[in-house]
């Protein structure tokens, strides 16, 4: 009865642990040698992994290439943004995500050396059609920038400016309604309703950003593009904007560029990961942040680029 195998040796916790770790270190270092650099991996990407296309696409981008002069910034991107969805564009600095975002309402037109190829359609309409007027396009596809940039005008006029120049409303009473409802939707009304005539630039940073969002939604856009809208804001103002994004997504289609991965995880339905101008992966946000398909996405969201 006593000659059991169990008798042989009872390893102590520490020795077992060290033994096991040794084995692991070995396999890991082998894997390391075989590993290609992120740049090599990114440059060899020809196809986006995951699900870049979607049902009922509001914006459909196909084979989009963007060049600044000789330098190519975006490589053959295919992506759909579905109606009433929030899509987050993430990636390291210089990966082309902002460039790509700015293509979606032709903001890059203002840059002489910038050349956009491929097709970008809004509800099936080619937005790069040479006959298309960009002013109404930008009313349909609004943009919120990194730094809050209110006009040097009163809070009221900041919001009323768009509807006025687009001729959306004529009577003062209607304009008052648009201003109020836009400020309400932007979550700013309660804070500014008693000082609508004071300058917009006198507000705090977070309030200014919400004013810019109110200004954007005052012209009833269909799509809102946000380029790092919270990077200059404190956590409370950020939380308010994020809350707002969730509410706005019920009526608008939103694409947001953000450097905060937690923010992308919190606010978006789908996440698109860019690297060196390539669209590496697009998937449901919950998938991207728990079990991404591509190793570069994994490396980026877990903070492993050195």
């Amino acid at each position: 009865m006593q000659d059991t195998v169990i008798e042989s040796k009872a390893p102590t916790a520490k020795t077992v642990q060290v033994e096991r770790t040794k084995k692991t270190t070995k396999t890991e270092s082998n894997a390391m040698n075989a590993k290609r650099s992120p740049t090599e991996i990114a440059e060899s990407i020809t196809e986006t992994v995951g699900k870049p296309l979607a049902q009922n696409a509001k914006l459909a981008m196909r084979n989009v290439n963007v060049h600044y002069d000789q330098k190519q910034a975006v490589f053959d991107v295919n992506l759909d943004i579905a109606e009433n969805q929030v899509v987050a564009l993430i990636g390291p600095s210089g990966c082309g995500k902002s460039t790509f975002l700015r293509c979606l309402n032709r903001m890059n037109d203002t840059i002489d050396i910038c050349r956009v190829e491929g097709s970008i359609q809004l509800d099936g309409m080619d937005i790069y059609d040479s006959k298309l007027d960009v002013v109404p396009l930008r009313a349909r596809v609004g943009m919120v920038f990194q730094k809050p940039n209110p006009f040097p005008k009163s809070i009221y006029d900041n919001v009323a400016y768009g509807p006025r120049i687009h001729g959306l409303v004529n009577r003062r009473a209607d304009l008052d309604d648009v201003v109020e409802s836009s400020l309400r939707k932007a979550g700013l009304w309660e804070e500014v309703k008693d000082r609508l005539e004071s300058p917009g630039t006198g507000l705090s940073g977070g309030q200014q950003q919400r004013l810019c969002i109110a200004r954007t939604i005052a012209v009833s856009p269909e799509v809102i593009l946000m380029d790092e809208p919270c990077s200059a804001l404190d956590p409370i103002a950020t939380a308010k904007i994020e809350e707002l994004i969730a509410e706005l997504s019920q009526n608008f289609t939103i694409a947001i560029v953000t450097h905060s991965m937690q923010q992308a995880a919190r606010v978006s339905n789908r996440t698109a990961y860019f690297h060196l101008g390539r669209l590496v992966e697009v998937n449901e946000t919950e998938k991207v942040f728990t079990n991404p398909d591509h190793e570069l996405t994994e490396a980026y969201i877990t903070g492993r680029f050195g």
């Binding site: 390893p11 916790a13 642990q17």
Partner: peptide, 24 residues
């Protein structure tokens, strides 16, 4: 990772000792 493995080593030992305690 280390602490889980240490805990694991300790538990392994406990199981082995307990079985041996019955057998012997």
């Amino acid at each position: 990772r280390e602490h889980l493995l240490e805990m694991g080593g300790l538990v392994e030992e406990q199981v082995a000792d307990a079985v041996r305690a019955i057998e012997s």
